[in-house]
Amino acid sequence: MLLRTINIVALPTLLFGVLIAVWSTVANQIQGFPPPMEVWNELLVVLSDPMYDNGAGDQGIALQLLSSLKRVFGGFALAIAVGIPVGLLIGMSKMAQTAFNPYIQILKPVSPLAWLPLALFVFKDVDMTAIFVIFITSIWPIIINTALGVRSVSEDYLNVAKVLQLTAFEKVFQIILPVAVPFIFTGMRLSLGIAWLVIVAAEMLTGGLGIGFWIWDEYNNLNYSHIIIGIILIGVVGYILDTIMGFIADHFDYRKRGRV
C-alpha cells in the first residue's frame, strides 16, 4: 500500500524531472525558446490577474478561456440536442439507419477547418461560425454512440415491453434510454473532447476573443512563454471537462449505481 502511494507520487515526479530537463535542453538550443523557469514566472503573472479587461484583444486569461468555453458549450449543446434524437431514430429504425449512414460516414471524417470558411461565409459572425463548426464536428460520436446504445438493448427487454404493450413513448423512456444512457454519455464525452480540440483551431482563424486566438496573438507578439502557458491551460481545462463528464456519466449509469 505504502509502496503504491510512493509510486503514484514518485513516478510522475520523476517523469516531470525528465520533461523539465529535455525542455531546458531544447530551450538552450533554440534562440528565444522560453526555459521552464521563465514560463513558470509568466504563468504566475498571467494567473495573478485573470479577469482584467482592457477592451478587445487584451483581456485576462480567465476571460479568454470562458469565451472559448461558451462557444464550446453552445456547439456541444446543439450537437446533443440534434445528435441524441437522430441517434435514437437510427438505432430504432433500420430504414433510418440505411438513409443516414452514408452521410454520417462521409461527413464524419471532414476536418473542422474545412467547414470554417463555409460557415464564415454563411454566418458572417465569429461566434456563430465557431459554434457551427463545433456542432458539425462533435455531433458524430453522439449520433453513433446513441444508435449503438439503442441497438444494444437486449431482445428480452423488448419482449417485456411487447408483453406489457408499452407505447413507443413508454418503450423509449422505460426500456431504451436506461440502456442507452451510458452509451450516450460515452458519445458526449468524446464529443466534448473534440469540441475542445476544435475551438482552438477555429479561434486561431476567426480571431476576436478566446484561448485559441490568445495563443495566436501571443505568437504574433513573439511572446513564446504565453504560448506554452496556453497549451498547458488548454490541457488542464480539457482534463477538467473530461473528468466532469465522466462523473456525470457514472451518475447516470445504472451499472454503477445502487450496488452494495
Partner: peptide, 20 residues
Amino acid sequence: APGPERAVVFQNHSLLPWLT
C-alpha cells in the same frame, strides 16, 4: 400480438437491471 393476458417468464428472467 403479445398482450398482458399472456404473461411470459423468460429463461433468463429479463428483469430490468436499473430497477429494484
